[in-house]
Computed example of a mutant assay.
Amino acid sequence: MNIPRLIDNYGREHHYLRISVTDRCNLRCVYCMPEEGMEFEPAEKILTFKEITEVVRVVAGMGIRKIRLTGGEPLVRKNLEQLVAMIAQIPEIEDISLTTNGMFLAAKASALKEAGLTRVNISMDSLQPDRFKLITRGGDVRKVLDSIDACVEAGLRPIKLNVVLMRGLNDDEIAEFIRLTRDRDIHIRFIEYMPIGHSDATWKNLYLPLSRVREVCAEQRWDYGPVATVQGNGPSENYRLDGALGSFGLIHPVSEHFCQSCNRLRLTADGYIKPCLAWTEQFHVRRVIGDDKAIRQMFLDALGTKPENHEMSHFLNDDLAITHTPTARRMSQIGG
């Protein structure tokens, strides 16, 4: 049988599926969820591990090779290592990664590695305990540090720390984060604050272009150069200080979008395909699970609506028109 590949209207072939396993989270990070929380989906609306695995099996035949498990916070989903093991048994899947806030990771790192998890990204927006608690609305930075050590011991590498930079909130820690890479094989990823589900004045006030990271390097008089590759580097533009073990990278979806090389699709916890993070288009694949042909066709239909770029930079300039309808879903509801 001639199974179609996942190629969109702009010639981009898709190898990467991000899967949200839950919309729930134990934290309320300021850029991801409102302080009062969200109205979470009831359990019966969330994809089962079996349903997720069925979708992955089908799209693996269409070219998907990389899977990232996200949330919400994926580790609030019980027995996540069982899902990792189920996906790891699909022959075409080469890489399974996890994005987590790190609160529960230390206790799970070894089991996840044994199940087939390849590597982790840990959200860590401040190194200062009080500020970390403020940004996450209740998080404990010491638990994240313990999780990093547990991942090193378990052999989950590379370890990447995701830092969402926000003006006046954590931008004074840029140099401190980069210094972490000198003596440890840790990879910092500075990420621009994205207007997902809320492009209001609050977002504009906190938004900071990542040109600021280069300015800090110049102020510190650091010598650094580009890194050719870091496993799973995706859209990150990576650098290493001279002599450092780790690296730091820039992910700038707003100021310098990377859409021309986008190779990812998203599956939400409630069973929708999202071809683009920023826009409202979504396709309810859960209702056709069990029919491989229908699943393949729905993924192709979703790709047919994927825009050339997400146009997030337009949110900085009210005079620029956008061509699609922005999503009303918050980041925690999509999976990032």
Rank of each mutant, 00 (worst) to 15 (best):
N2R: 11
L6T: 00
D8H: 04
G11T: 06
H15N: 07
C25P: 06
C25R: 00
C29D: 08
C29W: 09
E36G: 06
E36M: 08
L47E: 02
T48R: 09
T48G: 05
T48H: 03
T53C: 13
E54D: 02
V56A: 01
A60E: 11
L69K: 12
G72K: 10
V76E: 06
E81F: 09
V84K: 10
V84T: 15
A85Q: 08
P91A: 09
E94I: 06
D95P: 10
F104V: 13
K113Q: 13
K113W: 05
T118W: 10
I122M: 07
S123T: 11
S126R: 03
S126L: 07
L127A: 07
L127T: 02
L127S: 08
Q128Y: 11
D130W: 11
L134I: 12
D140C: 06
R142P: 05
L145F: 14
S147A: 10
S147D: 05
D149L: 13
A154H: 10
A154Q: 14
R157S: 14
P158V: 14
I159V: 13
L161Q: 02
V164A: 03
V164C: 04
L169S: 14
D172L: 00
D172M: 01
E173P: 00
E176S: 13
I178T: 09
I178W: 04
R182A: 02
D185N: 13
D185Y: 05
I191C: 05
P195N: 06
P195A: 03
I196S: 07
S199H: 13
D200Y: 02
A201N: 14
L206S: 14
S211E: 15
V213A: 01
E215A: 14
E215N: 12
C217I: 06
R221W: 10
D223M: 11
D223I: 08
G225F: 07
V227R: 06
T229M: 13
V230A: 14
N233H: 13
N233I: 02
P235W: 14
N238W: 09
L245T: 07
F248W: 02
G249P: 01
S255W: 03
H257E: 02
H257K: 04
F258C: 00
C262G: 05
N263D: 05
L267R: 06
L267G: 11
A269L: 01
D270A: 00
I273C: 00
L277R: 01
L277H: 07
W279Q: 04
T280W: 13
T280A: 15
R286P: 01
V288S: 12
G290R: 02
G290M: 04
M298V: 07
T305H: 12
N317C: 11
D319E: 12
T327S: 13
S332T: 15
S332M: 12
G335T: 01
G335Y: 08
